[in-house]
Design a protein around this nucleic acid. Sequence first.
RNA 1: GCGCCUGUCGUCAAGCGGUUAAGACCUCGGAUUGUGGUUCCGAUAUGCAUGGGUUCGAAUCCCAUCAGGCGCCCCA
Length: 411
Amino acid sequence: MTKIINVIKGTHDILPQEVDKWHILEENALKIFSRYGYKEIRTPIFEATELFARGVGDTTDIVNKEMYTFEKSERSLTLRPENTAGVVRAYIENGMARLSPPVKLWYKGPMFRYERPQKGRQRQFHQVGVEMFGIKEPTADAEVILMAVNYLKSLGLNDLDVEINSLGCPKCREEFKKRLKEVLKPEFDNLCDDCKTRYEKNPLRLLDCKVESCKAIFEKPEIQKVIQVDYICEECAEHFAKLKTYLDKLNVKYNVNKLLVRGLDYYNRTVFEIKSNNLGSQNAVCGGGRYDSLVKNLGGDDTPAVGWAMGMERLNSLLPDSEPQKLNGYIVSTSPVDAFELAEELRNDGFNIEFDLSNKKFTKQLEKASKVADYALILGEDEIKAGKVSVKNLATGEQKTVSRQELRSIL
RNA sequence: GCGCCUGUCGUCAAGCGGUUAAGACCUCGGAUUGUGGUUCCGAUAUGCAUGGGUUCGAAUCCCAUCAGGCGCCCCA
């Protein structure tokens, strides 16, 4: 036998028996986001590599070691590892800055990251996300978080933890980094290797370290003092305070997590995550925040923005399995031509209808009907002559012979 | 990139060095020439991820390769 070709590591097929759940995710996204005035945008799956290097940040793991990059016609192209950079590119390129703010966009689609696959993490995965441009006030942050929570609620996901934090603006963040480095200096040699690198490149990420010895260091009182004190400036503090007020008034439950930093470089001020306890170690279903400098960094006008993304596979695994959808009717007939005609008639009226294409025996057809449909539509010689159909309710066994017109009201 | 675990039919599996590789589900056929979902009978792995090795003998032990899972890291 010829060797079969397998799916690529870290990718997988979404099979018919699970696709219903995907439809639920997608339909609810359209429904909920539309209520808030968001429009869907679809951007290409690959972009210029430079977009991600400049957009996501070239010190991030995503850009450093996880991108699928390839050359074509002497251009370096990359399969998108996330979609914020692409949406921002589209926003700039299509002159959406000329639209009356806020500009509200949402998207869904596959993303690609070259990582070791594990539970809740694949190399091709899907995200649904939103981006809002043009509003610097914390109302935007609040709306976006509220919408995330309501989207999750619409999926029946209520018991999730919302964590928020403020990173401050570039100005006050520098101050915080400076203080953090000062207080950690005596401990530098005790940090893990990754943290030693972070210490130089991106000190905020130190707080995210999962290594026990590092966590212990950060628990020390003199270091906690620096972490707990708000180094963010007055304006940033006010922004964050207002956001919390809005969330309180809107009954969005959240925790402030000072250690929440996030791995993408473009965030400032508000960052947030939504986590589930039922996902294993990859427990974040949603991550996002404010990125006021990204549009400008990518060549657009100075435009404030805020957004988030959710991992659809992770959402999917939190959804209960759905019952497979049955056909409205399965035609049992020994006359393919008549079966065809009846099937087409009913299909045109919006019913889901199948019949046996291989002309099997009557009992086999009925057996098949009982497995895949709610009703068996029996179309034998007698019925054909009389211009009628015998309808059998396969759940109750009830059967009656009716005209084709009556048939529609039964199905 | 590192660590641990696992590969037997389409699926879930039993098998733990001895000669025809259990079983269940699914699928297909029959009992059953117009009445199913229950039941009964039958069919379906010359092969145990692949390649080597040990042995009189290997799905079972060893090595390598490949694939998958989980964890670290990072993230959705």
